Computed example of a mutant assay.
Amino acid sequence: MTLELKLFGFALGGIILSCVLLVLFGQITVRKLRKNPNTKDKLGSEFASGWDIFNVAQALALPKRITQVLARSPIAGLYADRVVLEENTTVFDRALAKILWYLQMASVFAMLLLILFDALGAFE
């Protein structure tokens, strides 16, 4: 088994696990937030069905400083409101959001690096 195949397996495993966590996070946390009248309109814009799950995970996972900058930007309506979300979620919800968000970002970044290295011929 080559190094390229091992790295691909880890990245693919991370993506599959993050897809499972995405469904769980949507069913456990975002579903509850959609039903709450206080948070219903604070989940960010939804470009495609389910996109608000990514918005909520991003808002709960990123450092507060980054979400504060995003909240003050002209395109703040695209992002979920972290302050309102933190008031209406549990510690478990926030931990699940962080695991989901960072696992997804790391897996996608690893796949992109594999594509780049393969295009440069690093695995030949």
Rank of each mutant, 00 (worst) to 15 (best):
T2M: 14
A97S: 05
Y79N: 04
P74I: 10
Q104H: 14
L113K: 09
N88T: 06
D93E: 11
K32T: 12
A80W: 10
Y79L: 02
K64Q: 09
V20M: 11
A119C: 12
K35G: 14
L43I: 11
E4F: 15
A110Q: 11
I28D: 11
F10T: 02
V108M: 06
V20S: 07
E86Y: 00
F25D: 01
K35H: 13
E124H: 15
K64I: 04
T67G: 04
A48V: 08
T89H: 01
N38V: 07
G121R: 07
A61C: 02
L70K: 13
M1L: 11
G9V: 09
W51S: 08
W51K: 06
K98D: 10
I28C: 07
L62K: 05
W51N: 04
F123I: 11
N38C: 01
M111T: 12
L112V: 14
M105H: 12
K64W: 03
L3W: 13
G13L: 12
T90R: 13
A48T: 10
E87K: 08
R72L: 12
E124I: 14
G77K: 01
G77L: 05
G77Y: 04
A71L: 00
L17R: 01
P63K: 05
L33T: 01
L116Q: 04
F47P: 03
L113S: 15
V56G: 01
L12F: 15
L100A: 13
K42G: 00
S73T: 10
R82K: 13
A71I: 00
G44T: 05
L70D: 01
R65I: 09
P74K: 12
R65A: 06
L114T: 14
I16N: 05
L24K: 02
T29E: 03
L103S: 14
L78F: 08
F92T: 01
L60G: 01
L33G: 01
R94W: 00
L116P: 00
L7D: 04
L62N: 07
I53D: 00
L43Q: 06
D41R: 05
A71N: 01
V83Q: 05
T29L: 03
D41E: 10
Q104R: 12
L33I: 02
E86D: 13
F109I: 04
L60A: 06
T2H: 12
A61H: 05
N36S: 03
F92G: 00
A61K: 01
P63S: 06
A95M: 13
G13A: 05
L5N: 13
I28N: 10
T89C: 13
G13C: 04
R31M: 11
Q27K: 13
L113D: 10
R82H: 00
V83R: 08
V84S: 12
